[in-house]
Amino acid sequence: MELLVAVMVGVMVAASVHLMLARNVLRFIFGLILISNAANLTIFAAGRLTPERPPLIPEGADAPAAQVANALPQALVLTAIVIGFGLFAFALTLVYRTYQTLGTLNSDEMRLAEPRGEDGS
């Protein structure tokens, strides 16, 4: 199971790196979204995958009855998803505003803050 998830993470990272190497900033953002999901899967798999029960403690007991899935990676992934959601919502809005203002999404043409020529770069 871990192997399968590992392969999946690898494929996702490869795809997102491909996207992130594009000059189009929107593609870059899509690559980021994909790679952030790969990171979430990594955390999830790092907490060991077990085909067990959900980590719920029955009414009246202090500990789960049998072996249950690891709850911590789930909490971490949830936090990461929530944060990622906020960040990517912001990033998409920013890219949209930039496109409206600068009229381009090609990162090579975005040189306003660092004009060509003056510093030879």
């Binding site: 992130m20 980021l32 790679i35 952030s36 920013l94 505003r97 930039t98 203002t101 600068l102 803050a113």
Partner: peptide, 17 residues
């Protein structure tokens, strides 16, 4: 401002990585 958006895109994307 236009330069801010331009700088912002670079700041945001690299920090997200």
């Amino acid at each position: 401002r236009r330069e801010q958006l331009d700088g912002g895109v670079k700041y945001v994307t690299l920090n997200l990585v």
